[in-house]
Every structure is written in C-alpha cells, then in structure tokens.
Design a binder for these strands. Structure first.
Lengths: 204, 204, 204, 204
DNA sequence: TATGAATGAGATTTCATTCAT
DNA sequence: TATGAATGAAATCTCATTCAT
C-alpha cells in the first residue's frame, strides 16, 4: 500500500498525475501526450512531476504494470488450457472477457497507446507468443496434423477482434457474457467444419 | 504519366519523398513522422520539400488518395451486394481481399497512421457506415427480425480483423485466396447456426 | 509589485525581455520584430522566453495594456466633456497631452507598431469612435446645424497630428504645455471663424 | 515609352507585377508583402519575376519613382513660394492637394509602406527638409523674429495631416477643393492671431 | 523570357528534462 | 516535496534569392 502523505495542496498529487496521465495517454497516445499539459491540468509544475516519476515513460508504466502482472498469470494459464473457444474452453473464455472488461483502460493503453514506450508491441507479442501457440497446438491436436500458421494467425486475429470490442465497447459484464455465448454458437459450429475440411485435405 | 525532369541530383526527388514518406509514416504515424528526417534521408533541404508539396499533409494525401478513390467505388458496390461472406458473396469477398493485398501500404496508412490528417477516422467510418449497415441488413433478412447491433458490430470487427491480417501479413494473392476460402468453410457453417439460434429466440 | 527572484544570470530577465522587446517592436513593428533577436540580445534562449510569456503577442500586450487601461478611463471622460480645444476644454486638453507625453512609448506601440496583434486598429477606432463623435457633436451644437463629417474628420486628424507630435517629439511636460497653449491661440481664433462661415451657409 | 512585347501568356506581365505589387505593398507593407504571393497572383513563377526586376525593392521603386520625380519639382517650387496657406499661397495649396489626390497610391506607399526600402523615412525627410524650412522662413518673416522650431514642426504636422486625409479619404477633386477652402477659413483667421501673439512676446 | 527546383536562413512554438533553490 | 526558470533540440513552414535549363 502506498502511503499518502497529504501535502500542502490538500490532494494526492501522485494519484492525480496517474488519473490525468491515463486520460491524456488514452486521448493522444504516449508520444502525443504532453507532460506539460498533464501537469497543468493537475495544477503542479513539470518540475514537481519528477518528484514522483523519473521520466515520462514511468508514469505510463505505473498505469499499466499492475494489470500486466495479473495478465501474465492469466496467460500462463491459457497456455495450459489451450484452445479458448473450443471444447470446454468456454469457462476460461468468459473469465478472459471479464478480465478485459474490468481492466479496460489498461488494455487500451497497452494495445493502442504504447508506441514509444518499452511496452510497444505488447499486442503483437501476446498474439505471437501466447495466442498463436495456444491455437496452433489445439488445432493440430484436433486435426491430427500440421496446420498452416497463416490460418492460425487469422483465427487468432479474429479472436483478438472480439477482445478488442469488449475493451472498447462499453458493455456491462452481463452484456459481454451474453454476446460471448452467442459468438460461441457461431464458432462451435464453424470450428468442427473447418477441422473436418483440414482433416480431409491431409497434411496442410 | 508524370514526366520526370531528372534534376541535378540525378534522381527523382518527388518519388524519393513519396517513398521515404511512406516508410516514415508507416513507422511513426503521420504526426510522429518528422519532415526534417524525411528530407534528410532523401538528401534535400526542408525548403525543397515545399517545391513538391504544399504541406506535410499533402504528402500523406498523395500516398493515399489514388487508393481511396478506387476504394470508394468498391464500397458502393459492397453496399448493393450486401452480406459479404454469406450466400453468393464469395465472389465479391475474394475481390475485396485481392484489392486490400494489392494496396497494402495505402490501407496501413489509412487505417493506422492517419491520426492528425483529414483522413483520420477512415476505418471507423468505413466500419460504421458501410460494413455495419451491410451486415445488419443481411442478417435481419435471414433472421426475419431485428438483430442486436452489438452482435453485428462484433461480427464486423472480426471480418475487419481478417482484412487487417491480409493487409499486414505478407500474403501473395494465391495465399490470400486460399486462406479466404478456408475461412468460408468456417463461416458457412457458423452463420446458419447463429441465424438459427437467433430465429428461435424470437425478437432479439 | 512584481517580486524579482534574481536568477543565476544576475539580472531580471523578464524586465530585460520587456525592455528589449519594446525597443525591437518600436524599431520594426510587431510582425517585423524577431523573437530570436530579442532573446539573443537579452542573452537567453528562445525557449526561455516562453517561461515568461505564453506567446509573442503577450509580450507586446504586457507593454501596452497598463497604459491602455488608464487610457480607457480618459476616453470616457473626454466623451462627456466634449470638444477638446473649444470652450473651457483647455484644461482637459492639457491633461491629455501630459498623459500622452508620459506614456509615449506605449502610444507609439499602439499607434504604429501593433499590426498583427489584437491591438491593431486602435488608432482608427479611437479616431472614429471617440474623437469623431466628440467633435461632431460639439461643432453641430455651435453651428446649430449638421456639419460635413469629412470636415470633422479633417479637424480630428489635425488634432491627432498634434498628439502624435507630442508622442514622438521629445518634449518635456513644460514644453508641451507651452506649445499647447500657443496652438490654442491659433484655434481659439480659427474655430469661431469657421463656425461663423458654416452658419452663414445654412445646412452643410 | 516602354515597348510591350506581348508574350506567350497574352498579357503584359510587367504591368501585372506592378499592379499586383502595388496592392500587396499597400495591404501589407514592403516587408510584410510576399514576392511569392505577388507572383502567384499574377500567375508567374518567382523566377520570372527576376526577369523584370533585380530585386524586390526595385518593384517598389518602380511604383514610386515616377511620382517621386514630379514631387521633387513640386518641392523646389514650394521652397520658393514659401508659406503655403498664408497670403497668396492659396493657389499653390490647391495644386498640392490636387497632386496628392491624383497620386494617392504612390504617396500611401511612400508614407506608410516603405519601411525596409531605401525610401523609408521619406515622409520624415520631406517634413524636415522641405515643409519645415518653408514654414519656418515664412513665419519668421511675418513675426519679424525667430520662431520656436517645435511650434513650426507642430504646424507642419497639422498640415501634413490634411494632406494625409486627402490621400486616404476618397475625395473627388471637387470635394477636396471645397474642404481645402473651408480649412483656409480656419487658418486665415488663426494664423494672424498666432503671429500677433508671437510678435508681442518679442523673441521666442 | 520564363521555369521551377533548390538553398539556407529564419520564423514561432513545443518538447522532455534538468537543476538550483 | 515542490518550484519555475532554463536548456537545447526539434517541430512545421516561409522567406528572398539563385541558377541551370
């Protein structure tokens, strides 16, 4: 727990910097956001900023890292219970969606506002290292053969589009759950059809 | 055909500005890209830039407008032959994908690098005005009732994710065609399942 | 009173910017004066300038606004005690001249160096809204009829020429007072002659 | 007479440069006016400009010099027939006003748009070398003693204000003549009063 | 005569960061 | 902790002028 030594201004400056920083980064991206503007909006000097954060990037990091840590745990889970929307993956899938909804802003920052930070490419890395592996393994097990990585990537990107929509759409948890299950109708029928066709073709 | 009066430098500066501009815009976005850097890489002064383009934005426009014009014709077509991946839409769909592959870079610029230009929001407008309408109409015809726009939007975003992958993935025309038809296996089976379920539920 | 935290340079930079700015604006006009040059002469970077003033125009405003405020009070006075150099206006007239002499530089800036700022046209507005009205009313009262505005404008411009000379000539307060009363000899005799002639002509 | 070799464009480019230059210089002053804008409005390249004029200043000079030459003849006349609005000066005075009206634009350029050219200060020089001398001599003859140059300067500036108004006001020749004679009523009565007082005071 | 590309310097303004106090 | 002045580089864009063609 961060202790808050309430200062002469009578409010928690660090919290204000975080909150305003979030808004500005979301609005203009990391590089587009101006430290001076953030500080002006909070009502402190830019000098004061550097009492709390060593550099601009660290403000961004502070907004993103708690979520990122929890996210990493999630990820290793996913790698084990492969294949999100197949088989009994439905349970896990709903968990993922709930997590994304809960941490909306952090994911927006990571996905779309991180250019210029060390978090740039987070989305790409997640797709390539986590989701791709997970999907590839799961599909190849079912097809009993190799599967074209390009096809896997496409399926992953479609899945990611769902996630993205849950992040940016302002859905309640209930709505999200409802939409997710409707989409499962779609994929529960589509996947077997695809798998069947791939099997017939022999090795891809 | 633009006539190229080869200059004292012995190369076509306008072409070089376009080419380098494309690369820089792709790498850093419109606002993030620096005219100075572009000019330095081409080997001319920033003053010289303004012999060729009235302003930074016009360089961007020159990279994007030819494609945009052709795209607009495509769009009006799509609005008439609604429902891309349903029914006999397969033909049109392949055309779209081919176009995206051919004009890869222009679409990357339009989709992801246009913030700060008059082309900003192009993707959003396309999604909301063209694809959403097309999908909504087509689905409601088949369901014979209203369909939740949130669900439509999700399906559209998934479709868009496919397009995006064709743009960013380095697929040949043949590969793209092949992948697209595989995905149709998926959706040709998934869509009827979804439509059926929506019908049973009565009004959405 | 502005407190002057003497800085590492050992002199009051804001004051220096004001003083140098005044000189440069007087010499080249607002648009012709260069911020770079002003800063170079003061010995600071142009970046430093923006610690003190938000923009170039604000430096100009700071040089001019205090005077302008006092001037506005003067003006509303004048509108009430119409007709400066007629009747008992002599008292007011001497006050005006003293004020102009005291605030010489500010009036030079306002009159002749303000193109490109929000103060542009100050002279024209003063002439047209204050002096013209004042003269027109006063003359028409004495003539007991309408007076050609073109003639009024001419008389106003002559009055303004006097003011201008007091601003640009380097007169002491005493000299100015002396000259003003000599001019009154001129106008005290000239005005009645003019008024008489206008009366005889009937309506102008 | 300048011979006009009508060119491929089918119009007299030099004349167009002069005409457009006049407008731009009047609107923005010499330094504020942009050669590129002038050329663009005329429809030629900036390079072409230098076929007709060696430098920006020469365009200005060409607009101003013919008038200036005639003006110089006028001036030497004035120096001989001293004292414009006194005695029989009335005739000369009307000539001057007519000349100013006829050459309006050139005088606007000389008076108010010449900063940055070798004509800068034309007004000041005229005032100081021609009008001042003329007035000083004439007054001292009538007063039979020395006259304070500051007073002379004031009277000159008032006269100049009249001229200025004739230049900027859009008066017809008739109107100008009419206004001038009205002002003479004023000065014909004011001057003797002033002269009388100066005489009484003995030496100034 | 006319082009139009090119220069090099200069314009105002913003940036993240530093640092003495 | 907080200030706020200061830096130095960078941003986009405009300028008058030159010059090979």
């Amino acid at each position: 727990m961060r202790t808050v030594a309430v200062n002469t201004k009578g409010f928690d400056i660090q919290a204000a910097l975080l909150e305003t920083g979030r808004r500005e980064f979301l609005a203009h991206g990391f590089e587009g956001a101006s430290l001076r503007v953030i500080c002006r909006k909070v009502g402190v000097t830019t000098g004061a900023f550097y009492s709390y954060f060593e550099r601009k990037e660290n403000l961004f990091a502070a907004l993103v890292e708690p979520t990122l840590e929890r996210f990493r745990m999630f990820s290793s889970d996913l790698l084990q219970h492969a294949a999100l929307d197949m088989e009994s993956g439905g349970e896990k899938e709903l968990e993922v969606v709930a997590f994304l909804c809960e941490q909306r802003d952090a994911f927006k920052l990571l996905f779309d506002c991180s250019a210029g930070t060390r978090f740039a490419g987070f989305k790409r890395r997640w797709v390539e290292q986590v989701l791709m592996d997970s999907y590839q393994n799961s599909l190849e097990q079912r097809v009993q053969g190799t599967v074209d990585p390009a096809l896997v990537r496409l399926l992953v990107k479609m899945k990611l589009a769902q996630y993205n929509e849950f992040i940016y759409g302002d859905y309640s948890a209930d709505q999200a759950r409802d939409l997710t299950s409707k989409l499962m109708l779609y994929s529960d029928s589509g996947f077997p059809a695809l798998v069947g066709a791939l099997k017939d073709n022999g090795t891809e």
